[in-house]
Design a protein around this nucleic acid. Sequence first.
DNA 1: TCCTTAGTTCAAAAGTTATTGAACAATTGG
DNA 2: CCAATTGTTCAATAACTTTTGAACTAAGGA
Lengths: 118, 118
Amino acid sequence: MSLPHPTTDQISLPIVLAVLGDPTRLAIVRYLASKEGVPLNCSKFLDLASKTNLSYHLAKLREAGVTRSEAVGTSRLITLRRDDLDKRFPGLLDSVIAAADGDKDLPAVGTAEVEVSA
Amino acid sequence: MSLPHPTTDQISLPIVLAVLGDPTRLAIVRYLASKEGVPLNCSKFLDLASKTNLSYHLAKLREAGVTRSEAVGTSRLITLRRDDLDKRFPGLLDSVIAAADGDKDLPAVGTAEVEVSA
DNA sequence: TCCTTAGTTCAAAAGTTATTGAACAATTGG
DNA sequence: CCAATTGTTCAATAACTTTTGAACTAAGGA
């Protein structure tokens, strides 16, 4: 690990809720949950927002304790802190993700045109 | 009913999360949940914020679909929309309230000095 | 070494939310 | 009717959050 993360018991409920109460961040969390175990780098989320703006949202998620960011080379590997969140707020993440999966109005990763490779 | 409320399927996940991501509103919801079935009026929450500010927060909760406000005489009877929320986002409210109950840093109704009646 | 890739930082601008006090409306009890 | 109670609305301000672009750092490959 490299960047500042709260410990499990420092994770605050209102902060987590406020951080999840943003469509872009909810889409990030939802995608991370759908790829659980696979660490993703920021570029995976570029169809949600600009690089600079993603940096901002990913920092918010990390500072709230929702995600973990590990610096590896020039990348950041991002994972959901599922175990910590489940320990601290049992059932919360599952119900949020289930609700997000059923929300047609939420932005989603992989919805834009992609893969027009040479 | 009297004031504008969203229908069950108009309730939006990011809006509900953002609305619950405020300590004052979380305290209101927590207290409503603890008194479920008993309609409360705004004055019950006066130790959380000023009258004007409560009016603002209670309107936010109502507009998000978290609470129902019914005008009765000069009062507003406020209730949690538990059935609607459970239908729309199963498990969410329960996990939020359980987490809020375990949060020592959250403001709470009935924590200030009271009941010095004549 | 130089270039590219990946992401951060900074400052500014834009937008949103929270808080306040004063004035208002509606109901109810005397 | 009058006064008190309950809560709303309005405008102002304060305080945050989001978004942006330009400049930057750090690692890795040619």
